[in-house]
Computed example of a mutant assay.
Amino acid sequence: MAFPKHAVIITAAGSSERFNTTSQLGVKKEYLSLDGHTVLYRSVAPFLEVPQCAVILVTYPEGMEDQCAVALEDVFQQNFLPVVLVKGGKNRQESVFNALKMLAAMDLDIEYVAIHDGARCFVKPELVIRTLATATVFGGAVPALPATDALKIINDNGMITHHINRTHAVGVQTPQVFRYPQILEAHQKAASTAATYVDDTEIYTDYGQPVGICEGDRGNRKITFIEDIPDAENQIQAYLQSLEEGKRSSQAARALHQAMDEVRKEQQES
């Protein structure tokens, strides 16, 4: 097939609340390492291998732009595909919309946008290509796997209220691929309402656009809990210590510059 021109949005602006529940240390899971590379790097790198990508946009939480850049390792050093950091919003929906607005400002010649979770670090280029191909048929596409567990709906008290027939139930993954600018328009409409959405397929279909599925990959799992990363707690302690040392070094450097400025000022006045 001819590869469609596309952009990629990597969502990495979340708070990692479920990941940090046990330790309450507040470190983003995407910035920790698995087998020598950060989770975020591993989530981004496969998209570099897919032809006809115009740009990759990576969302980050407010105040963590530098940490996000470090976690991307040498992605900025490759010279054939631009990577842009975008400040995220208060939730995933707002973060994706921020990235889409940034993409609109770039005015690129693209046909599709792939949106991928920054914590889904086992994605393979083959899955990206399969999802892109499906999107060229339906306009939107998402990798999916049949539900294997019995599905139930519960009430606020934890009691089962409904039993779901799993025959037509699937679990969806990312990347989710959509025709552009239709996904931008769907997000614009969604932003004007009080509704909140679980993912971008819900936004896309809610505003009248079709989404087809392709075969997902059971290996394409998402880092969610602290036990998903071996030695995570040790990594977190080292990460926080490094941040604290960097903060102290920065404060010392600012104090030194301030002292030097005061000396120069005194010299000029005398």
Rank of each mutant, 00 (worst) to 15 (best):
F97Q: 07
M1T: 15
A191L: 03
G26L: 07
A54D: 04
P210V: 06
M159E: 07
G208V: 04
P146S: 06
R42A: 10
D117M: 02
K5G: 04
K189N: 10
T131I: 02
R218Y: 06
V58T: 00
V123A: 13
T11C: 10
F138A: 14
I203C: 03
A259I: 07
N79K: 10
N79V: 13
I164W: 14
V113E: 04
D217Y: 05
L25M: 14
Y197V: 02
P4K: 13
K189C: 05
T134G: 06
I164Q: 13
D74H: 15
C121P: 00
N165W: 02
A71Y: 09
V263W: 14
A54R: 07
Q237G: 03
D200V: 06
I183R: 08
E269I: 04
I115N: 03
V263E: 13
E244T: 14
G36M: 15
K87E: 11
N220G: 04
F3D: 10
A253C: 07
A133C: 01
A150K: 15
N20P: 02
S192E: 12
E17Q: 11
L243Q: 09
D261W: 11
G89E: 01
I160W: 07
R264A: 09
L256Y: 15
I10T: 03
E269G: 02
P175M: 11
D261Y: 08
D199Q: 10
V70E: 15
A114W: 01
A194L: 01
L72G: 10
Y204C: 05
L132C: 05
R254K: 13
G208R: 05
D35T: 09
I110M: 00
I203L: 00
I164E: 05
Y60Q: 06
D199P: 01
G63H: 00
S249A: 15
M260P: 00
H163Q: 14
G140W: 01
F97R: 11
A54L: 03
N20H: 06
R166M: 10
P61R: 11
C121V: 12
V27Q: 04
A141T: 00
V70F: 04
M1F: 13
L243H: 06
F19W: 10
N98L: 00
V96P: 00
K28S: 13
T193W: 10
P61Q: 04
I160D: 02
K152W: 15
I223D: 07
N20G: 05
P82L: 05
C121S: 13
H162E: 09
V123L: 14
N20A: 09
D261I: 02
Q209C: 08
A169Q: 14
G63N: 04
A71V: 09
P210Y: 08
G14N: 09
R179Y: 01
E233Q: 11
K29Q: 07
N165H: 08
V211L: 09
A13L: 04
A238I: 04
L100I: 00
A253G: 04
L256D: 12
E262W: 10
S16N: 02
E49A: 15
L34G: 08
